[in-house]
Nucleic acid binder design. Structure first.
Lengths: 133, 133
DNA sequence: TTAGTACTTAAAGTTAACTTTAAGTCAACC
DNA sequence: GGTTGACTTAAAGTTAACTTTAAGTACTAA
């Protein structure tokens, strides 16, 4: 049988607050989630896939609005495939820039840390010299 | 002579709004900037270096608050070097995680784009076959 | 001397992305 | 039949990081 989870369980599974899941649905990032007889949400495989998609992009810094644009195109059907592809390519370029910058900053930070390290080592050597005299 | 720029010029040089420069100063990311006789800010080399530091980290997603913590330690003097080093190392780990995730997302996006590409190519081939009959 | 431009400050406003609150429904257990 | 717990919605609140506004000062050119 297909896995079916409550909002609390889904929240746990993806480590996303239940309120956030409702929020994503409200603003149209998630399609309306199926409800049981008492009106509680039942999340299924297709929802999980969507949540993963959203989470991944969000963690990479893609805005909710941009994801919404994509999802909207998705709903418009197959004829939007070229636009969707274009949109993803643009997003890809942005992320590549971001990754590039990040790697530079990481290098810079390593340098600064190394400088501190050098300072500390030099200090300790001075200390030892003092102790010897 | 040392380069001296007005807030407007500095804003241009770094592509950061003048209001943002004032804001950074107000919250203590920047040290109080020197002023001329009529109370206008004069930015100099040491300010440029600080602005660069802030800009680089901000672009990598480091929060203003975290940068503030670092700057505060800096002001406390040399004895905070071990703490500063520790702080930067932690930040470095975070950024490395972020870069890692970003590279994964980039790969995922490339896959999705390739799928769209395949779909489009397949469509065109179907179209040609139709035209031939 | 007046107009314009470039600044100044303090305070209020904005935006994105949630998060919290308030009030209510429903099924299960005591 | 009352209480508990897991949900529901709509609306209000929060936070970070700016950005805008309002009111004022100072130099410069006409």
């Amino acid at each position: 049988m297909e896995e079916q989870l409550s909002i609390a369980q889904t929240s746990q599974k993806f480590n996303i607050a239940a309120s956030t899941l409702r929020y994503y649905e409200k603003i149209g990032l998630m399609d309306p989630v199926e409800k049981n007889a008492s009106g509680h949400r039942i999340y299924k495989e297709k929802d999980f896939r969507r949540i993963n998609f959203i989470k991944t992009l969000r963690e990479a810094g893609v805005t909710v609005e941009q994801i919404k644009t994509y999802v909207d195109l998705f709903h418009e059907g197959e004829h939007t495939i070229p636009q969707r592809k274009q949109l993803l390519i643009e997003q890809l370029h942005l992320l590549q820039k971001q990754a590039d910058n990040l790697l530079h900053v990481i290098d810079d930070l390593k340098d600064i840390i190394q400088n501190y390290e050098d300072t500390l080592v030099k200090r300790e050597m001075d200390q030892r010299r003092k102790n010897r005299t």
